[in-house]
Structures are given as C-alpha cells and as structure tokens.
Computed example of a mutant assay.
Amino acid sequence: MTDDTQQMTSYALNDPAKLLQPRLLLLEDDERLGQITKELLDDEYRVEWVTSGAQAKSRFAAGSFDAAIVDRRLPDMDGLELVRSLRASGVTTPVLILTALGAVGDIVDGLDGGANDYLTKPFSFKELDARLRAMLRGYDAERGDSYGIGDWVFHAHTAMAESPQGDLVPLTAAEAALLKVMCDSPDHVFSRAELLGTAFRPDAVEGTVDTYVSYIRQKTTRDIILTVRGKGYVLGRPEE
C-alpha cells in the first residue's frame, strides 16, 4: 500500500470529513519550512508535500489538486518552469508561488507565467492562508456538492469519482445522476422503481438501473453500491 493510499484510508476510517477538504500540493525543498507550512495548513487542507519539481510533476500526473503552493528555487528546476508546463498541458489548478525572489520583475514573470498569486518570503501565515482562501472561493462554493463514500469521494458538480489514491474517474451524466440520488440519502434502501423515477428519463426501463449500477461498480469499486436482496440498492462504505 502506498503512502497516499494509507493516508486516504486513515481519513476514511478516522476522519471522513477530511476527504472533503481541498487537496493541496505543497512544493518546498526547504525541509524545515516545508514541514512547518504543512503542519499549519493540515487543519484546513489535505496537504501533499514534495521537495522537487519532478516529484510535483509525478503527483499531478497521478491525480488532480484543488490548489498548489510552488517555490521557485528548487534543486532540479525553477518552480516557474513547472507552472508553465502545467498551463501548457491544460492544467488549470490555482497556483500560488511562494519564494524569496521578490523583485518586481520576478513577480511579473511569475504572474505572466501562469501563477494566480505570488507571495515572497519571509511571509505571514495569516496572509498565506487568506490568499489560499481567495484562490479557492470557487471550490468552497462547489464543495457542498461533493460526497464522501467510504474512502472514495464523488464530485457531483464535475461528474467525477475520486479514488483513495487521488485518481479521478469520469462518470457519464446518467451514472452521476444515479450516484447523486443515492448520496443525498445515504442510508436509504432504494427500490429499482425509486431510482428509475428519480435518476433516469421517463422512458427508461427497469433494467436500466441494474445496468448503470454495474457500470459505476466497474469504474470504481464493487461495494460502492450494495445490493439489498429483494429490496434494491443502498450506498456502500467502501474501504481500501
């Protein structure tokens, strides 16, 4: 089991609400500053801390983040190179550059290079926290439409299921509609007729429910939706 999987499983078992917090990548090669910053942010975010540009690229390739804090002076690259690379590949994650390079030209380069904000070291944690909140206001507006399902998270607004490893699994509109209906009443046992009437078009046949339950299970995990014999389906509590 990877470190990420262990962390997500721990959240699911001990603090499920943590799964609904914004996922933040912290790129800082200074061990002491990185550790302190991570600890300060851990109450409000799911922080993944890496120390090199290569590690950051690998993490972005493995899954998405809601925001990123990027240092510029890294052992393997200028952090601005990473930001430019992300933007060139279509990644729109909000990025705050946190660096000692504070000349006007450096700030202009950072913002023109794709960063959403720029903060110079030394910095006030209160200011860093406020700037992150400002970048994530859109996320906060959408967060009420995300649901923890065991160690998975379903983002209804983007029709995505997020695995314990942070990988995003796209769902079709019908799959997302079915899952949202069940997430809104997580302890209710739904009959096929109920699901048919609330999640599908009026002309859908009863077998449609079984088909789409199967599709969701194949894309995620089998016990994300449980079968209640003779009654229908109930939302599961899948664990790694």
Score class of each variant (00 low, 15 high):
S89N: 09
G90T: 07
G90M: 08
G90C: 07
V91S: 03
V91C: 11
V91F: 05
V91R: 07
V91H: 06
P94R: 06
P94F: 01
V95D: 01
V95S: 02
L96R: 01
L96M: 12
L98Y: 07
L98W: 02
L98V: 08
A100S: 11
A100V: 06
A100C: 06
A100Y: 01
L101F: 09
L101T: 01
L101W: 07
G102F: 02
A103F: 05
V104W: 04
V104Y: 05
V104M: 08
V104T: 11
G105I: 08
G105N: 11
D106F: 03
D106V: 03
D106I: 09
D106T: 06
D106G: 04
I107A: 09
I107Q: 13
V108E: 06
D109N: 12
G110Q: 00
G110H: 00
G110W: 00
G110I: 00
G110D: 00
L111F: 05
L111E: 08
D112F: 06
D112H: 14
D112T: 10
G113R: 02
G113C: 02
G113S: 06
G114E: 06
A115F: 06
A115I: 08
N116A: 10
N116Q: 15
N116D: 15
N116L: 11
D117S: 05
D117E: 08
Y118R: 00
Y118N: 01
L119S: 10
L119W: 11
L119G: 13
T120C: 02
T120G: 08
T120V: 11
T120Y: 01
K121V: 09
K121T: 14
K121N: 06
K121D: 03
P122I: 08
P122D: 10
F123S: 14
F123M: 10
F123L: 13
S124P: 02
S124V: 06
F125D: 02
F125M: 09
K126F: 09
K126V: 15
K126M: 14
E127S: 04
E127W: 04
E127M: 13
L128W: 03
L128E: 04
A130L: 11
A130K: 12
R131L: 09
R131V: 10
R131M: 08
L132S: 09
L132V: 06
L132D: 03
L132G: 05
L132M: 14
A134W: 03
A134C: 12
M135K: 05
M135F: 05
L136A: 05
L136T: 04
R137S: 13
G138I: 08
G138L: 08
Y139T: 03
D140T: 13
A141I: 11
E142Q: 15
R143K: 11
R143H: 04
R143S: 09
R143Y: 05
G144W: 11
G144C: 07
D145I: 02
D145A: 15
D145Q: 15
D145R: 15
D145E: 14
